[in-house]
Amino acid sequence: MNEKELKATVLKALASVVPELDEAHLAPEKNFREQLDIDSMDFLNYVIALCAATKIEIPEADYRKIASVDGTVAYLAQHQKRSSAT
């Protein structure tokens, strides 16, 4: 997936827990948990949706890297790069 596709995947996973998500009012570089008032249960649902869409198993230790849209896109892109290199 290219960066645009990754971002669409991230937003779709977010929308699965925040159906009324308004991308225009979401700062992609900032922590979306604070912006959207997402608690630990909905964050877990987001991670589950993301893993299902990308087939990437994200360890709990990496959760802090995927707490913003930009951060998640970068994380997934890096993971893709690593996977294609091996």
């Binding site: 630990s40 249960m41 877990l44 991670v47 589950i48 893993c51 198993e57 994200i58 709990e60």
Partner: peptide, 17 residues
Amino acid sequence: LASENEKRSVAERILYG
């Protein structure tokens, strides 16, 4: 929990709650 959740798939992870 950190140790337990390492062994679990995302959908099976446990929250401290």
